[in-house]
Nucleic acid binder design. Structure first.
Lengths: 174, 174
DNA sequence: CTTGACTCTATACGCGACTACAGGGTTTAT
DNA sequence: ATAAACCCTGTAGTCGCGTATAGAGTCAAG
């Protein structure tokens, strides 16, 4: 829905095609969507995009619809859907099945996950804050590695569940 | 599994301090610490544990200190430290360097990360809740994949910013 | 003595969402 | 005409934190 504008919109890309953009190459799609070229091919392999037309030399030729599809994918990702779930939704939609029931179920599940995760995070945050404060006053005891960590009490000593922090961000690549 | 008799003094013990258990085998350590056998060997490989004594037949023989070390590791993990950071801290401590400054810096960094992440999560949660609600009243529109997702507005359309789990920053084609 | 639980090493796999490379072909700009 | 910039396929690697398997040796009990 939304934008069903088919005409030759002036797109800011560096190339000015005369004809309406029925055939963007992968690099243009990447630039306009913000999704990397490799990621686009990866999405295609993963069944998120479907196979685009090809030029006689084999280049992928996308039409504008792909941008909406990519916007959909990005939004769904933003909302916490995995690519797998997104693929499911899209595939249902293409089979004519309303994805909404599926999606609703998925959203509910995700909702519960998120709120639990937020709780953990907040606990985590409190724990860290307390640790820092105590630290500033206590310093370290002689016999141990780091008194405050060692003195920290855990509500949940399960070794797997305590890991809250998601993947670490690389510090490079500003 | 489970109840194993240790030389003279121990039933699966919690209070077996008759003689200091200078030789726990890996399974016992696993049981008492809650850390899996494979994980213990993995920690050793990763430099978190140091090499324990060995029996003539090559079995690892741990003394009680390892339990404290493992408790330290688990707590630090619980607090959001990566194994890498924990290794650093321990290594500093063993070199005689006070790890506390390092740790403090790490904790502060982590603190900021966590609170930002919590904010994202809450935003995310709100977004999802709103989506579900609208869904229940609106239903689906005919032409699209899933109207509500497509209608979702993203505050920050950057592909990296909305993610639940952070990922590496993608470099744009310059 | 045999069984079965335990341990050893080394290697491979799993997750999620890409990213990087190798080794080509094609298009575009000078 | 030539080089730069793009595109192709296919495979492998990354990140963190382990888990799983294979194939072998060891230990305590029945």
């Amino acid at each position: 829905m939304a934008i069903r504008n088919n005409t030759a919109t002036t797109i800011v890309g560096r190339t000015n095609r005369l004809s309406p953009r029925t055939s963007m190459k992968i690099g243009e799609v990447s630039q306009e969507s913000g999704v990397g070229v490799e990621a686009l091919r990866f999405y295609e392999r993963s069944g998120l995009l479907g196979r685009p037309a090809r030029s006689r030399s084999g280049y992928r030729l996308y039409d504008e619809a792909v941008l909406e599809r990519l916007a959909f994918i990005r939004k769904a990702q933003f909302l916490g859907f995995s690519l797998d779930e997104i693929r499911h939704i899209i595939s249902d939609a293409e089979k004519g099945v309303s994805p909404c029931d599926d999606v609703r179920a998925i959203v509910r599940r995700r909702l519960a996950e998120v709120s639990e995760r937020v709780k953990e995070m907040q606990r985590h945050h409190r724990e860290l804050t307390r640790t820092l404060e105590e630290w500033d006053e206590v310093g370290r005891a002689p016999g141990n590695i780091c008194g405050l960590i060692e003195g920290t009490e855990m509500q949940n000593p399960s070794p797997t569940s305590g890991r809250v922090t998601p993947k670490k961000q690389r510090k490079k690549t500003a």
